[in-house]
């Protein structure tokens, strides 16, 4: 059956969980391309025989219906295989990108599964993203830390345990029990985990239904 190999290729990636990537199936891709080439050769033969007959294509088609339909089927198969190959490459590229966002370590561990061009793509994407996150050239914060944008980059926290003077990148805080401070969310998260502070919820909206 035509196009069966390419479907196998797609199934391979579809059966894999989103945070994983199967190894780049070089062999199968080559076979699919070979298949496409074979279709092309068959088509070329048919076109050549048509040209030899000296008739115009419509007449030739009327006289040789079998050959004409074969021509159409071969063409459709080429298009289908191309589409499936494209999907395969596109899906892999998307996963390489999304792994960069979801987990830094996973992005490194899939390196052996990638083809040479994919490695190149991954490196270029990394460079681009780092540049965008850097201060000066970009927004100045690591966007991959939290994929859902926080409602507010700053958090108000209430101190639960005395911990004296704490120096954080954003400034010095005197964390005395039962006081409230504003600090950047990423700096607060460590303190919240350790139980020194807790986030205060500003539920002060009477205007909308919360979803």
């Amino acid at each position: 059956m035509f196009g069966k190999r390419a479907v196998e290729l797609i199934n391979e990636i579809a059966n894999c969980t989103p945070e994983n990537l199967p190894a780049y199936n070089d062999e199968l891709v080559r076979l699919v391309i070979e298949e496409v080439n074979e279709h092309y050769n068959q088509m070329s033969d048919l076109v050549r025989s048509m040209n030899r007959s000296g008739q115009d294509s419509a007449e030739w088609g009327m006289e040789h219906p079998e050959e004409a339909s074969a021509l159409v089927v071969h063409h459709a198969c080429i298009l289908r295989n191309k589409r499936l190959l494209m999907t395969y490459v596109k899906e892999r590229a998307e996963r390489i990108k999304s792994l960069k966002w979801s987990s830094r370590t996973a992005a490194m561990s899939i390196r052996p599964q990638l083809s040479a061009t994919e490695v190149e793509f991954q490196q270029a994407y990394d460079r681009l993203l780092t540049k965008y996150c850097r201060k000066g050239t970009g927004v100045g914060m690591d966007l991959t830390l939290d994929t859902t944008p926080p409602s507010d980059p700053e958090l108000s926290v209430r101190v639960r345990k005395d911990c004296g003077e704490v120096v954080l990148p954003s400034g010095t805080f005197f964390l005395k029990k039962n006081t409230c401070h504003i600090m950047p969310r990423e700096e607060a998260e460590g303190l919240i985990r350790d139980g020194y502070v807790e986030a205060l919820e500003h539920d002060n909206c009477l205007l909308r239904w919360d979803t």
Binding site: E154, F174, K176, T179, H181, I182, N204
Partner: peptide
């Protein structure tokens, strides 16, 4: 707090019961 948050001013709130605590802080 709503007003200070609206203009992105960080603040610290100190509940106190005596002026001595204000001084200490």
């Amino acid at each position: 707090e709503v007003l200070l948050r609206a203009i992105h001013l960080p603040y610290s709130v100190y509940p106190v019961t005596r002026y001595a605590q204000v001084q200490e802080t």
